[in-house]
Design a binder for these strands. Structure first.
Length: 887
RNA sequence: GGGCGCGUAGCUCAGUGGUACGAGCGCCGCCUUCACACGGCGGAAGUCGCUGGUUCGAUCCCAGCCGCGCCCACCA
């Protein structure tokens, strides 16, 4: 058989294997094929740059899922694709333009969008390369993009349908506005953080009594320029006679009233609230109840408009905040400015502080959709893994507000709505409608806005299967929808998962996925979130180049349990690399000793040796453990179980145990050993393949002689149960041997007996039967010259006793140890230890040292004193025992 | 303010109602033994956050507390 290179070199193996899989069409699936359907759609990565380590985790997990399903004979498909990622991608390109000293407005809309497409090609190409390097077995023939033609048609159909159903509407409402991105945002695109700000208290003078007035407070002083009322609680007696009175605006020539509303908390501050209907959601609600005037003071870039008056017009909001306070102070109206911690909304894409702003936007009325989705979760038609995410998922659905879907950016699906000169709205499937549906006029102009990127991503689980409009059906949809599992990080359950669930149920009347599997976030070795600002992000390609894709994957699996964050350090990946190398050498050993034996049928059970039955039993038990862990996609357990099997059981014990036979001359026992070894290696590679596809494929080809191409481990059957292999007697028997061997090794280590030194052992044990029956095995593993079994040990001088599990072993010390040399060694060590101890005690006896040295250092010396004292005691005891021998 | 999770060896994490079997990395000692020094063998190291309770018995169950993290939330 082929000799393998001595060490595993991933770079020499991985690229070719991927090409080979591709060429053989092993990633391609056909809806008409046999087998239980099993589909996963990739969470389409944003074309904003390159994949980060979190993507590596997602893709490793999904690849393992789909590879295992494929090996199990399922009709498995994994759909690739990317997301155009509206605002995020536009921001990337805008930054590029800024670096070039220009901006999108200078370029114009058409040229800008063209430019983003160019970037999409570049970024997308890089992502594609990364996905391949990771080993992702994606069906590339089915690659989709959220902004390609078929997906765009579906987006328009969904928009128009929902509009026809009255679930999409246009309205003038208070929305979240990002002054930097110049667009509306949905609620979940706003990240709240508790920031330390200021609470400014000031007085609004009464219109008829400039020296009197009412105290209010605000964190955004500039909003007072748009105040149109002051509200107090109806039951607040302090203000009972103030309600209805007018106050005068200090900077503008207008007055407004004090009103009463339940919303006000009398306990907070003065108990009176200034009302800015255009820039605060609560105030807006109050304005509607009381029919207040609404004054919009903010421009798109959050500078103040002319309505605020000459003094402040044109100022940036933060500058205005400062100056308003100054002016109030100058007028003697400012009562104080206190530090105040409060929640501030930031744009999730650029971190700019968002402003509530009144504007015309498109909305989805989500209630009916959300109710359906929540019902599906409650019915168990789809379930979350781990289950603990279910509650917050449902809470979120239950409390959902209407979804702002229009964005004032250029990169995205243009809203299929047109306006006639009279402002009537025509929503249509047509590309270029010529007549207003309301008045029949021509000269229609399309809405400038584009859709929230999630509006198209939500259609992903069915548009990738050819769905373009309600009622569509395709072979792919019939076979693969609902998909088996939606695997993604818990951070996008609200953004993406919930929306897919809502819209999938709405248009296809069936959940888009039966399981929502949430993996955790990848963190660094200190548990810190990886982020650009921390400077701790690592490019997956760096790991792959250094350790191989399998190593990166395995390291991620080793720490990945459902919903649990995954810490990752270079050392972890290095450790996983060592595992792949170990595997390489395990199989390499196998190849050297198997002669022409290939995995196949085993000899009858009675021909198997104890160690054979033990390893087969262990293999089956581990396989079952992995199987159980797969039921919950607990990759930390799965990888842990298989790692343990390969390294601690197979490599450390079985391979050593089997050497006497495979290197021996007895053709029968040799053939049996070879058959078992081949079987175990074969199964191990199959079990590991979904997680570490490259190294296992390469080794499996060497082991089985498979030619590659269609002869691939990728499509070899995944091991199913062999319950007959479970053998408790063999496990117990081998455990007894193992115990004896380990105790002998410990004896050697503690007594300075070289591993190469042979000696005799006299043993008494409750496991005598097994041990005696496997004399060769015992002596070879423990490095003994001979072993004798007795009913009871005699108490003999000059011997040492080794305690066993259920027995004892006796070693003749004479001759085993060169007593004089050992005595000399011990004396030398003793002298050194005593010298050290004197030094330490000298220091500790020095009052100067004890008083002045840092407590830590003193303690260090004390610890060392204790340690040295103990060492000396032990050495002295050893010396005594040895001296007895010579006398 | 609400919800979720976490606090076990120096580090990152497993783990179970019955003396912590812990793992990887790190550390100490021995070994270049014919698969592997990306290795082998042996070893040191933990009041299982704190306080109560349930129990024959809790690191694991319950309650409270302390600390940390995350998510959600329209209190000026």
């Amino acid at each position: 058989m082929t000799e393998l290179p001595k060490a595993y070199d991933p770079a020499a193996v991985e690229p070719d294997l991927y090409e080979d899989w591709l060429a053989a069409g092993l990633f391609s699936a056909d809806p008409d094929d046999e087998g239980e359907p099993f589909a996963i759609v990739i969470p389409p990565p944003n074309v904003t740059g390159a994949l980060h380590i979190g993507h590596a985790l997602t893709n490793a997990i999904e690849d393992a899922m789909v590879r295992r399903a494929r090996m199990q004979g399922k009709n498995a498909v994994w759909i690739p694709g990317m997301d155009h990622a509206g605002i995020a991608t536009q921001n990337v390109v805008e930054k590029q333009l800024a670096a070039e000293g220009t901006d999108r407005h200078e370029l114009g809309r058409e040229a800008f969008v063209e430019r983003v497409w160019e970037w999409k090609e570049e970024s997308g190409g890089r992502i594609l390369d990364q996905l391949r390097k990771l080993g992702s077995s994606l069906d590339w023939d089915r690659e989709a993009f959220t902004f390609d033609e078929p997906r765009s048609r579906a987006v328009r159909e969904v928009f128009v349908s929902l509009h026809e159903q009255g679930l999409i509407y246009r309205g003038n409402r208070l929305i979240n506005w990002c002054p930097r991105c110049h667009t509306a945002l949905s609620d979940i695109e706003v990240d709240h953080s508790d920031d330390v700000g200021e609470l400014a208290r000031f007085r609004y003078p009464f219109a008829d009594d400039p020296d009197g007035g009412i105290e209010v407070a605000t964190t955004r002083a500039e909003t007072m320029l748009g105040d149109t009322a002051i509200a107090v609680h109806p039951d607040d007696e302090r203000y009972a006679d103030v309600v209805g009175r007018e106050v005068r605006h200090p900077f503008q020539d207008r007055t407004f009233r004090v009103i009463a509303d339940d919303y006000v908390d009398p306990e907070f501050g003065s108990g009176a609230v200034k009302i800015t209907p255009a820039h605060d959601p609560n105030d807006h609600a109050i304005a509607l109840r009381h029919d207040l005037e609404v004054i919009d003071i903010l421009a798109e870039d959050a500078t103040l408009t002319d309505v605020v008056g000459e003094r402040f017009a044109g100022l940036d909001r933060f500058e205005a905040r400062r100056q308003v306070k100054e002016e109030l102070d100058a007028l003697g109206l400012l009562l104080g400015v206190d530090s105040h911690e409060h929640s501030v909304g930031h744009c999730s894409r650029c971190d700019t502080v968002v402003e509530p702003r009144l504007s015309d936007q498109w909305f989805v009325e989500v209630r009916p959709l959300a109710d359906k989705a929540a019902q599906a979760v409650r019915d168990g038609r789809t379930r979350l893994v781990p289950d603990r995410f279910t509650k917050s998922f449902l809470d979120w659905l239950d409390g959902l507000h209407d979804w702002t879907i229009s964005r004032q950016i250029w990169w995205g699906h243009r809203i299929p709505a047109w306006y006639c000169p009279d402002g009537h709205i025509t929503v249509t499937r047509e590309d270029a409608p010529t007549a207003c549906t309301e008045c029949g006029q021509g000269g229609l102009v399309q809405d400038e806005d584009v859709l929230d990127t999630w509006f198209s991503s939500q259609l992903w689980p069915f548009t990738v299967f050819g769905w373009e409009k309600p009622g569509d059906t395709t072979p792919e949809l019939e076979t693969w929808y609902p998909t088996a599992v939606l695997e993604t990080g818990y951070d996008i359950n609200t953004f993406w998962v919930s929306r897919m669930l809502m819209i999938g149920l709405w248009f296809l009347d069936e959940v888009p996925f039966r399981v929502i599997y949430n993996h955790g976030m990848v963190r660094d070795q200190y548990g810190k979130k990886m982020s650009k600002s921390f400077g701790n992000v690592i490019d997956p390609l760096e790991f792959i180049d250094e350790f191989g894709a399998d190593a990166l994957r395995f390291a991620l699996f080793q720490h990945s349990s459902p919903g649990t964050d995954v810490p990752l350090a270079p050392e972890w990946v290095e450790g996983a690399k060592r595992f792949t190398n170990k595997l390489w050498n395990i199989v390499g050993f196998g190849l050297r000793v198997l002669d022409d034996a290939r995995p196949g049928a085993l000899p009858p059970r009675e021909q198997l040796a104890l160690e054979d039955r033990w390893i087969l039993s262990t293999l089956e038990r581990t396989r079952a453990q992995a199987e159980d862990a797969y039921a919950t996609w607990d990759y930390a357990r799965i990888s842990g179980a298989l790692y343990h099997l390969a390294w601690d059981e197979l490599a450390d014990w079985y391979l050593e145990a089997v050497k006497p036979r495979v290197y021996g001359d007895d053709p029968d026992t040799k053939a049996t050993a070879q058959a078992v070894l081949a079987r175990v290696l074969d199964d191990l590679l199959r079990l590991l393949h979904p997680m570490i596809p490259f190294v296992t494929e390469q080794l499996w080809r060497a082991l089985t002689g498979a030619a590659g191409g269609p002869e691939s481990l990728m499509v070899a059957p995944y091991p199913t149960g062999r319950p007959d292999d479970l053998d408790e007697d063999a496990e117990a028997g081998f455990a007894a041997i193992r115990d004896l061997v380990t105790e002998v090794r410990r004896f050697r280590s503690q007594n300075g007996v070289a591993p190469s030194a042979r000696f005799e052992l006299t043993v008494t044990s409750s496991a005598r039967g097994v041990l005696e029956g496997h004399r060769t095995l015992v002596t070879s593993l423990a490095g003994l010259s001979d072993v004798t079994f007795v009913d009871a040990l005699e108490d003999r001088p000059g011997t040492s006793t080794i305690v066993l599990d259920g027995g004892q072993a006796q070693v003749e010390l004479a001759g085993l140890i060169d007593v004089d040399a050992e005595l000399a060694r011990i004396d030398k060590e003793l002298a050194r230890a005593e010298g050290d101890l004197r030094g330490v005690e000298g220091k500790l006896g020095n009052a100067n040292f004890v008083d002045k040295a840092p407590a830590e250092v003193v303690q260090q010396q004390r610890d060392r004193q204790v340690e040295l004292t103990r060492t000396i005691e032990e050495l002295t005891a050893q010396r005594g025992a040895l001296a007895d021998l010579t006398s």
